[in-house]
Structure formats: C-alpha cells, structure tokens
Design a binder for these strands. Sequence first.
DNA 1: ACTTGCCTTCCATTGGACGGAAGGATCACC
DNA 2: GGTGATCCTTCCGTCCAATGGAAGGCAAGT
Lengths: 247, 247
Amino acid sequence: MSASVTSRALDLLGAFDTDHRQLTLSALARRAGLPLATAHRLVGELCRWGALARLESGEYVIGRRLWDLGLLAPVQAGLRQAASPFLHDLYGATLVTVHLAVRDGCEVLYIDRLSGHVSVPVVSKVGSRLPMHATGVGKVLLAHAPEPVRAEVLGKLTRVTPYTITQPARLLDQLRRVRAEGFATTGEEMSLGACSVAVPVRGPVGEVVAALGLVVPDLRRERARLVSALQVAAQGISRVLASAQWK
Amino acid sequence: MSASVTSRALDLLGAFDTDHRQLTLSALARRAGLPLATAHRLVGELCRWGALARLESGEYVIGRRLWDLGLLAPVQAGLRQAASPFLHDLYGATLVTVHLAVRDGCEVLYIDRLSGHVSVPVVSKVGSRLPMHATGVGKVLLAHAPEPVRAEVLGKLTRVTPYTITQPARLLDQLRRVRAEGFATTGEEMSLGACSVAVPVRGPVGEVVAALGLVVPDLRRERARLVSALQVAAQGISRVLASAQWK
DNA sequence: ACTTGCCTTCCATTGGACGGAAGGATCACC
DNA sequence: GGTGATCCTTCCGTCCAATGGAAGGCAAGT
C-alpha cells in the first residue's frame, strides 16, 4: 500500500517517537520498512532541508526546521500562548503541576505542562496522549465530546491502576456530574499517588476547546480552593481567546 | 534546481511561516512554486499522513503530527524540560519576562519564553530568531561562540533602534566584559522601552549551551538582584542537565 | 584474518509522479 | 441570469526520476 514517493519520506519521519529520538540510518530504514539505499538518499534530502539533523555520533534526529514548523500548528498557536500567563499564575497560586490539554480523537493530547521541582510524579508529557477515562482533563473533554466519541471511549475502558473506572455506567454517571458541576476529579485512576482536578476552557461561542487541570497528591482538603483557582484561570483564557481576533 | 519529488513536499511545508499559518491550496501552490494539480496531490498525501490539516474554511494548516514530531527535536528535548521548573521559579521571583535561547547559526533562537500579563512588550516569540548583537541572550551566546561566527556577526551589525550597537569595536569590548563578568545587558538596543540581562547556561563540560535572560523596563536599580537570580537558575539548569544521563 | 555491523556510491530499469486540460463549485458584479 | 474570477478536484498519457540490488569501504568485535 501507499509507497507513494512522498509518503516514503514521511514514513522515515514517522520512525521517530518519544522512545526513539535518535536513530542510525539502518535503524531508520528498518523502522520505516525501506531498503537501506533508498533511506539513505531520502534522509540526505531531509537533512539538507533541515527536517532532520545528524549528530556527531552519526545518528539522526528531528531537525530544527521541523521544530519551527510544529510551533505553527494551530493546536497551540492560539490556545497555548493565550493560556501561558494564566498557567503561570495558576502554578504560582497552587505550586502543583498544571496541565493544558485538548481532545485528539479518542485521547487526551497534552498541549502544555507546567511543573516545579517538588510535584507529584506524573505520567504526562507535552505532546503525549493518554486515555480520556483515567485523567481529570480527559473526563472534562469527554463530558463535552460529541456522542460518537463518547461511545467509542466507553467501549473499551482499559484498566490502568486498581482505581481506574472500567464500568461504563459509572463513568457515564460521573460525566453527567462533570457537566452539571463544571469540574472533574480523579483519584489515583491513572497513576498511584496522583489525584487531579480539571475544568473546561471555553471558546468564543461557549464550546469546550480545552481542559485545564491540576495534579496533586491528595484532593480532599483543598478541592474547593483548587477548583476556584482553576475556574478563574479558565475564564481568563477564554476572555483572551475571544478577544484575540482569531487571526 | 532540486525538484526531487521529496523536496516538493518539503517546499510545500516550507510555504508556512509565522505570517502564513493558514493557506489555501492555490496560495500554497503559488508559494511553493508548484503547479496546482501537483500541489493538490501532494497536499492530499500530507493531510492523510497528518503533516497538514484542513480547516472547515478549506484552508490548510500544519497538522498535529508535525507538532508532535517537532517536540522530539533535540533543540529542546533535554534543555527545555530541564529548564522549565527553573524558568517558573525565576518568573515567580522577578515577575518579568523570562527567555531561554540558543544560538542557531548567526542568530538567536528562542527556545522558551515565559511572560505574565503585565510585562514589557517584547518582540521575541518562541521559535523566532533575532539578531545576536541586539539582545541580552544574543550577546551571551555571541561572547562564547566560535570565532568564525563572531566574525560573521560583527561583519554586519544592522541597526534596529537608535541605541543598537553598530560599531564592531564597541561590541567586541562588551563581549570581553561579558566573558569576564558572567552576564550581559542591553538597553533599548532591540526595542525601545526594553532592557535586558542575560547569563550563560553551561553544559556538563562547562561549554555554553544556552542563555537565560530577563526583559525589564529599566535596569539600573535592580541589576544586582536580577543577575544573581539568573545565576541561581542557570546553575540549577546546568545541574539537572549534567545529571540527566543525556539519554 | 574473518565476520558482522555500519555507511556510501553507482547506474540500468521501470513504475509512478507529473501537470495540462477539462469540469464543477462558488462568489461578485453588471 | 449572464459573465468573469477564483477557487478546488479529477483524469490520464508521457516520460523522467526514484528505486534498490550490488559492490566497496570502514570500524569493532571474536
């Protein structure tokens, strides 16, 4: 299938992921399923253009030009920079890990993360994707997702920790409350020792465009304070988004 | 020249920049110098792969997959996340715009920026490049750059504001002091009303890998405090970088 | 010295990219 | 409703440029 010449180059790029940030030529060829000679030539072109770069070690890595390009993606172009100051404020006020995430298909995509030195260890990384049913931001986004998405996610609720919610009925019930109360919580459902709170970030016409969340070791005592801090920040972001001409 | 099939696709990607984040098919073709039919086919492939995405309006933008990929670039992979908590601390301690930058050829490339609501308006954006001789981080990086780079930069010191340093001798003198004193400053040399301080960030073997800077409206009163805050942060980053196994 | 793993270059073959042309859709203006 | 602009999409015969096997060169490991 495929094998269109362009897609070969793309297959090469696709060989990189979080676990494979640097690859030798042959590893690259192997992972992309291309003959060595072909890979060699394509990689050469990609390097010349700046999509890849070669380390002194001879291994290849993603180049600066792709990094540049990535920054232009609308995933974050508007949202991320609008949110940035509010994330800092939020961090300053709470001193815990702050997350900004959007829905990508049936997963949560982390757009930005802000954490200090002394935070709960968390799984998320900027650019990584996690299941929606086991994270705070995920629940928020799921609660406001179109029906077909919700159906698909409810279809396979994979267990991550002993506390992960795997019964569709129970999750549905929670989602209803998320919509009613305006925030979602989790308790060690994604990783042990980590709880989270999250609220929706709304766009100009009230639609949910992202979710803003905090990760803390324990939720019971501070919930109210955290939720209100989150809501202040979320509203601030919405305000900026609305006024940003969406140029 | 070029015209290799792969590079056509890359030319299409190259048609995007900060001023052109969304393009129609024909604009894309025009900017890339390709026949419409060809562009159409290639863009189709790029979309299918996720390198581009199509808005409801019909315009094309950089897709999420490229955003993902960009995050893997070593420009920031290690540096940026190592620095992140320290940038926040620094912001918390000073409440002014914080910059993290590296040298890219003969320019300064901004890797990360952190600014609150109430800061001096600054030109820089993450992913953007500015001249080295007119910015604080630029002077730091230039002071520790290899000789040929320094020579080239000194060759054309373009004027940006009335205060921009355009005499090679004077800049050289400043660079010497930057190396001696361990920090650089600017006074409205890049944009009026903005001054800056910056210090080097050193890697495991003492080489300068990045620069850390602050932008403030006025430097005179607080210089000492800002410099020491910067140095604490820079040392912290270096420490993390060194211990990070450089996996 | 032999093997096994990398990377690089060459070049004859051929299959898939190319792009002109034609068709459709949507606007705006007369 | 006609006319002209500007956009997007599809088709298909030509032909050229990507392909990848083969051969050669390093460098390490046994």
